[in-house]
Design a binder for these strands. Structure first.
Lengths: 202, 202
DNA sequence: CGTACATTTGACCAAACGGTTAAAATAAAA
DNA sequence: TTTTATTTTAACCGTTTGGTCAAATGTACG
């Protein structure tokens, strides 16, 4: 993280905290101002409206997701190793941003037209290539037959869902079943890799 | 669905629609009244406050999730067949309630103390037994070695996440890659079962 | 120093919100 | 029908919310 102390970035940091946790509808400009330790009018001085400020945070959030996906899929490796990279990259991002998935999914449900453009522009890049590679490795018998899109989807599910659902899971699991968040993520990494590896055995 | 035409259930149906889509913070009492085709004051006549009405819907939602889980895990079957049942039961529920997962996960993040009691009371029932069964089948060599809690978590991830993320996925996938929602779920069912089966091969 | 410019603040505003109330409309009981 | 109880509504209330503005404070520069 870049340690920025300008008013502008202090505001952004506060907006990030509040918006990510409470979403557009649940966030209050006054709360963001308090979190930043400034006057509420100053928020409007730098970012004209709640919506403008929110859009900024939303774009940043989608950017993080897109960067992770692209970083994991761009290097020339086998399908399995690309998915392993995806596990590493995403779980490291989510360790410091556990509200990221729900935040984006929510606003997508609430306001699809706002996100659609961002997603199509930033995320779609390396996906067609990856799907093609899956098809090839299946034909070569390197991995078990599987619908390429479903494979990617399965990997994303295994990575993201447990993070988003952690608060619920920690209750379902019963006393002491689930470790604290960070340790839980460390457990998930090999767990997911093993599950994917096994599922892809020809 | 029970076709109820009393004012009380008309209100509940409207509240369901609005709360599930927009959450507590985003929902407006006036919108619920409009959706129900009644006066706003009537909402308060039957359900005293927004929070009371919301709690009713939330309890109902958690009940659906709990029922699905319990129904799938209670019958005496192998681990694999229990997970297959979970796929069937949940994807059938989610077909008619695509906002259910995000709704519950969100309110859990926002207001843990409200849900915690409900979850512990309704959901935890059959889980310890299932985890024990996984341990036994692993020892007997019927399925590949795996952490029981992670297996359950993986199954839930594969089932729920794609439903919650469908709006995003339909954009990522690019033009024509993903079918419409209902057809997508029909595709997922065998996809998930195959993935789990493969992953559990000893 | 003084002046021009940017930054920050407290006070305020209009709209939206959850909730209340008294009266109207409807149904049930006599 | 008349009376009583229930259901529904329009109008209203106090608070919260996003947003504005003029004044105050700080900063750069001649």
């Amino acid at each position: 993280m870049v340690k920025d102390t300008t008013t502008e970035s202090i505001i952004l940091e506060a907006a990030r905290t509040v918006f990510l946790k409470k979403g557009m509808a649940g966030a209050r400009m006054q709360e963001i101002a308090d979190e930043a330790g400034i006057n509420k009018a100053l928020l409007h001085y730098y970012y004209r409206s709640k919506e403008k400020l929110f859009d900024r945070i939303l774009e940043e959030a989608i950017g993080q997701i897109a960067d992770g996906l692209n970083k994991a899929l761009e290097e020339e490796q086998s399908v399995t190793l690309k998915l392993f990279a995806l596990v590493e990259v995403y779980l490291n991002v989510l360790r410091d941003n556990r509200y990221l998935p729900l935040f984006v999914l929510n606003e997508m449900n609430l306001n699809p037209e706002k996100i659609t453009a961002l997603i199509e522009r930033k995320i779609a890049k390396h996906i067609p290539g990856f799907l093609k590679q899956v098809r090839e490795e299946v034909e070569q018998g390197l991995i078990a037959p599987i619908h390429p899109m479903h494979l990617l989807l399965n990997a994303l599910s295994l990575i993201i869902f447990p993070v988003a659902a952690y608060p619920v899971l920690s209750k379902i699991g019963g006393a002491g079943e689930l470790p604290v968040f960070e340790a839980f993520l460390d457990e998930r990494k090999p767990g997911i890799k093993q599950f994917i590896t096994h599922a892809l055995r020809p």
